[in-house]
């Protein structure tokens, strides 16, 4: 019985279909669970999907290496998906024109600081170069951040973990900050959510209002482009 299962596993993991099937199933289940539990801020769908997958991959004995090799057939699509982000960015262009002054002043400084604060703290705490280059793109939307981490020689897995934590924290901290600084402009709230919390922050912004959502997409897109273009040049390792 055990032998037959081992043999079946060898056959199944010879091609990528098992990984693809598992990933699709986890994605659909995570989407369903997320809606079922009233869209909790601290538990985005990507975290649910990853937890489900990690459990199956570890318990079934497939192993992460084997799983990842098959899942690569899906993850190669991140390339064109990153290109696709240019379309909503273009569609937000009229927002950029209307508010270009605050955006132009805030974006380069805030996007740089989003990376520098965390890097500075990690550096002071003696983090290894691998950890530093993995954390550098922490505020950037995932497909772009994965590219940046690869370019800097970081660990993509650690980057994605950092991204996830950052997105969840940013949603919570913006909530606090807005109350503390008495900000009522949805455009500012949205922009701050997207700039710091990428896609997870943007999902939160859409719950506040459509305006906040639009500005969050904008902040996310611009931070992504800015960080991806400048971080690899500025990073001193």
């Amino acid at each position: 019985m055990n032998n037959a299962f081992a043999e079946l596993l060898t056959v199944w993991t010879a091609g990528p279909m098992l990984s693809i099937g598992l990933t699709l199933a986890a994605f659909l289940m995570a989407t369903w669970l997320f809606a079922r539990f009233h869209r909790p801020l601290w538990m985005p769908p990507v975290l649910i999907a990853a937890l489900l997958l990690a459990a199956v991959v570890a318990l079934s004995g497939i192993g992460f290496e084997e799983y990842e090799q098959g899942a690569r057939w899906l993850t190669v699509l991140l390339g064109p998906a990153t290109v696709a982000l240019g379309v909503p960015l273009y569609q937000q262009m009229h927002h950029i024109r209307a508010l270009w002054k605050p955006i132009l002043v805030t974006l380069p400084l805030a996007a740089t600081l989003a990376a520098v604060y965390a890097l500075g703290i990690a550096w002071l705490m003696d983090a290894s170069p691998l950890v530093l280059s993995s954390l550098a793109p922490k505020s950037v939307t995932a497909p772009i951040a994965m590219g940046v981490a690869e370019q800097l020689g970081g660990s993509v897995s650690l980057t994605l973990g950092g991204l996830l934590i950052t997105g969840v924290l940013a949603s919570v901290f913006v909530d606090w900050g807005v109350r503390w600084l008495k900000i009522e402009d949805d455009r500012i709230i949205g922009f701050a959510l997207g700039l710091n919390g990428h896609a997870i922050g943007t999902a939160r912004a859409f719950e506040i209002s459509p305006t906040a959502g639009a500005f969050s997409s904008l902040g996310m897109g611009l931070t992504g482009v800015f960080t991806a273009l400048f971080l690899p040049f500025a990073f001193p390792f």
């Binding site: 990984s19 990933t23 699709l24 986890a26 994605f27 995570a30 989407t31 769908p45 990507v46 975290l47 999907a49 990853a50 997958l53 990690a54 991959v57 992460f64 799983y67 990842e68 899942a71 690569r72 899906l74 993850t75 699509l77 991140l78 998906a81 995932a142 497909p143 994965m146 993509v156 897995s157 994605l160 973990g161 996830l164």
Partner: peptide, 10 residues
């Protein structure tokens, strides 16, 4: 999310 999840599993 589907495309990113495999990386997060890592």
């Amino acid at each position: 999310v589907l495309l990113i999840a495999p990386g997060v599993v890592g």
